Amino acid sequence: MNVTDSCGAGGRSKSTRKARAGDCGAQPLRRPTTFRVDRSSGRKADFDQHVGIPKYIADASCRIHRVMRGALLLAGVVSVAALTVVGFRYLTSVREPEESFDAEQWVSRREQVQLNDPGCVRGGMALSLMRTDTLLKLTRGEVVRLLGAPDDSAAETLRYGLGQCHWDWRQSVLVIRFGPAGRTSSVGIKTE
């Protein structure tokens, strides 16, 4: 048995693990007996029989093996979590290149948004508005003057249709929220 086999598989109870020869905490590991052939008689003679690996080396090897197994498990979990976050961000982000905001184009594209399969009509301009923070700290009246009449509104929000800007072809909307002072507090793109 070699050193890498000495720790055994996880999941067994300690008593089972200790009872198995060559496991962590058990007897020192033994190298297999090697033989040399005596040339004069042609017989095998023991050579290097029962040269043991000291217990402290076997125990250290088992600890290293356990730590490496734990590190690999942790690395796998972190990798899966990172891929999940990246995948979620990819699936929920707008798939449209940023386009500089033009108020006339914004208003004229409103009718295209209402079509059955419009594509991402105003998504690029919405990304530009968000990146430049153009809408932050504006009052409700200033936002309506800039973007035109909203497609939907409530006491604290205005919603402007963008078209189908997400991967699953659902309608996307620019949601503008107002704080207690009556000024824009947040701007985001959501799906309906």
Score class of each variant (00 low, 15 high):
Val51Gly: 04
Ala75Tyr: 03
Ala58Glu: 09
Gly76Phe: 03
Gly76Leu: 06
Val77Leu: 15
Ile57Asn: 02
His65Leu: 10
Gly70Ser: 08
Phe47Arg: 11
Gln49Phe: 12
His50Thr: 10
Leu72Pro: 00
Val67Gly: 00
Lys44Asp: 11
Leu72Trp: 02
Ile53Glu: 00
Tyr56Trp: 12
Asp46Glu: 02
Ser61Phe: 08
Ala71Glu: 10
Ala60Ser: 13
Ile53Met: 06
His50Asn: 15
Pro54Arg: 07
Gly76Asn: 10
Lys55Val: 02
Ser61Gly: 06
Val67Trp: 07
Lys55Trp: 03
Arg43Trp: 05
His50Met: 01
Leu74Gln: 01
His50Ser: 05
Pro54Val: 11
Phe47Met: 02
Phe47Asp: 02
Val80Asn: 02
Ala75Val: 14
Leu72Tyr: 12
Arg43Phe: 04
Asp46Tyr: 01
His65Met: 05
Leu72Met: 11
His65Asp: 15
Asp59Tyr: 01
Arg63Ile: 11
Ser79Asp: 01
Ser61Lys: 04
Leu73Val: 13
Asp48Gln: 12
Val51Cys: 01
His65Ala: 14
Leu72Lys: 15
Asp48Gly: 07
Pro54Cys: 03
Leu73Asp: 08
Ile57Asp: 01
Ala58Thr: 11
Asp48Val: 04
His50Asp: 14
Asp48Leu: 14
Ala75Met: 04
Lys55Thr: 13
Asp46Ala: 13
Gly52Val: 02
Asp59Met: 07
Asp46Lys: 14
Arg66Glu: 09
Phe47Lys: 12
Val51Ser: 10
His50Trp: 03
His65Ser: 14
Lys55Gln: 15
Ala45Val: 06
Ala60Phe: 05
Ser61Arg: 07
Leu73Tyr: 12
Ala71Tyr: 03
Asp48Met: 11
Ser79Ile: 03
Leu74Asp: 00
Met68Gln: 13
Gly76Cys: 11
Arg66Thr: 03
Cys62Phe: 08
Gly70Ala: 13
Val67Leu: 13
Arg43Pro: 00
Ile64Trp: 09
Gly76Ala: 10
Arg43Ala: 05
Lys55Asn: 13
Val78Arg: 07
Ala75Phe: 10
Val67Lys: 03
Ala75Trp: 06
Ala60Lys: 14
Val67Glu: 13
